[in-house]
Nucleic acid binder design. Structure first.
Lengths: 133, 133
DNA sequence: CAGTATCCAGATCGATACTG
DNA sequence: CAGTATCGATCTGGATACTG
């Protein structure tokens, strides 16, 4: 089995990272896999403009207030969404995706699409595995 | 904010999935984010041939026996690696990546590379966020 | 409205000990 | 060698109640 080119290039890049950068890279990639974070980000991407907290919560079905708050804070912290507070009563907070957030989704979309298209293969593999002696 | 084309295409595909397929898709994508699973898979991809359990464990630094077993089982179940047992004493088990596993890595590599290249941006975003009033 | 604080149940993981 | 079994610490997420 030859070492594939894409893997080699990835290795070279990854090994050039400091330990701190490596840890951060892993963290960001991990966020991609997080159910709520990615869903939240794509809701903001699909909206025609900034969304209030409760509008986001409506669209991310099943999320709790606590989890949404956490997801939005993380996304904000990493510069993937912006948070704008208005000094009104009742309070209004608007979230919007950043260009970096859009870029992130663009990177994730091919992977997601590939998995979705391959879902039949995975189902087959699993049923074979589950019914082996 | 216009709905980007890539997102729309992804939406259309995702909405064509049954609830079961959707759940499986999420699960597979989640595995991508899992530290050990991806690392294990890339070790097998980088090897010049099948690897024994203990060889894999050597290369995935810091993993416990329990976690490696779990990661390998999941990868096997999804058809991303194969497991071959030899009836010898002491027992020998060899793991190898499948074509599907290679494909999976090929899908993940661009994302990983992009994150690694963007790590500086994320560091900046975080330090700004962490030092805001 | 947009959170924060608290409690609690379930999953996860490392360490350790044991086995075919 | 390649696991499985068990235990305890840790983390996570939902439900609920409360607040500026």
């Amino acid at each position: 089995m030859d070492k594939p080119g894409f893997l080699e290039r990835c290795d070279v890049l990854c090994e050039s990272l400091s330990e701190e950068e490596d840890a951060l890279t892993r963290e960001i990639v991990a966020r991609v896999a997080d159910k709520w974070s990615l869903w939240t980000l794509s809701v903001l991407a699909g909206a025609s403009g900034p969304l209030r907290f409760s509008r986001v919560m409506d669209q991310v079905e099943g999320i709790s207030q606590k989890s949404l708050t956490k997801a939005l804070r993380q996304l904000e912290r990493d510069g993937l969404v912006t948070r704008k507070m208005f000094a009104e009563v009742p309070p209004r907070v608007e979230y919007a995706i950043t260009p970096m957030g859009v870029e992130m989704l663009e990177q994730v979309a091919p992977l997601w699409t590939w998995v979705a298209k391959s879902v039949g293969h995975f189902q087959t593999a699993r049923s074979q595995f589950d019914s082996r002696d």
